[in-house]
């Protein structure tokens, strides 16, 4: 799984609209879609039309949308499969399918045009508690670092291991993850010292 790159989105005009408007519009659309009646009506088509109109404006690549939609489709398809076994529920399931796909698509447009730190800024304006904000901000900052670190450890481990037995693979991954936790704990201590050195509190 790749982290969405931020630098590619700067060109789109939608990217330059204020994040509050983008977030508000997306949430309103999702709310509207979720409140639609539970059978397929023309309104679903209208919403899909709106999203298709917004798509080129947001300049979201087709492959990005497809890949992210497919990830969600596993769960959606699982629930749909369950419900298709009961004949009376078919319109409900079709509506739920349409709803969840439209909602995921709306969120994808938001994600493509809005970097996470903009969303963090909005959450701060909405008075989210400081502990949560700090945690979210640190998480956003160190996510790529830890991912890179885990990949480095995996590569190092793979270059020293000449067996593909499953037992060993589990042992290796657990060792890597345990070590990753220890390293993140040590990094957290250093971050605290660095925060204090820069006058935190």
């Amino acid at each position: 799984m790749q982290l969405p790159a931020t630098e590619r989105r700067t060109g789109a005009s939608v990217s330059r609209t204020p994040p509050s408007i983008k977030l508000g519009t997306a949430l309103a659309l999702v709310l509207f879609i979720c409140l639609l009646p539970r059978r397929l009506t023309a309104t679903y088509g209208i919403v899909a039309g709106i999203l298709l109109f917004l798509w080129p404006l947001c300049r979201m690549p087709f492959l990005f949308a497809l890949r992210r939609l497919l990830v969600m489709e596993f769960f959606i398809a699982g629930v749909a499969l369950l419900s298709l076994l009961t004949p009376s529920a078919t319109p409900v399931v079709l509506a739920a399918l349409a709803k969840s796909n439209l909602c995921v698509f709306t969120m994808l447009l938001l994600i493509w045009t809005t970097p996470f730190h903009d969303i963090l800024g909005q959450l701060r304006k909405l008075r989210m508690p400081t502990v949560m904000l700090t945690t979210l901000a640190l998480m956003y900052r160190f996510l790529p670092v830890l991912l890179e670190e885990s990949r480095r450890m995996q590569r190092a481990r793979a270059s020293r291991t000449f067996s593909r037995r499953r037992r060993l693979a589990w042992d290796n991954l657990a060792a890597i993850l345990g070590q990753l936790f220890i390293r993140s704990a040590e990094r957290a201590e250093r971050i605290y010292l660095a925060m204090c050195a820069r006058g935190w509190k």
């Binding site: 640190l138 998480m139 670092v145 830890l146 885990s150 693979a169 990753l180 971050i191 925060m195």
Partner: peptide
């Protein structure tokens, strides 16, 4: 001094979710 640990633990959980066990 444990506050940054929350953020780092969250990043750790996320990174751990991306490594697949066979």
């Amino acid at each position: 001094h444990r506050l940054p640990m929350l953020g780092l633990a969250a990043a750790f959980v996320f990174a751990a979710q991306m490594l697949n066990f066979p």
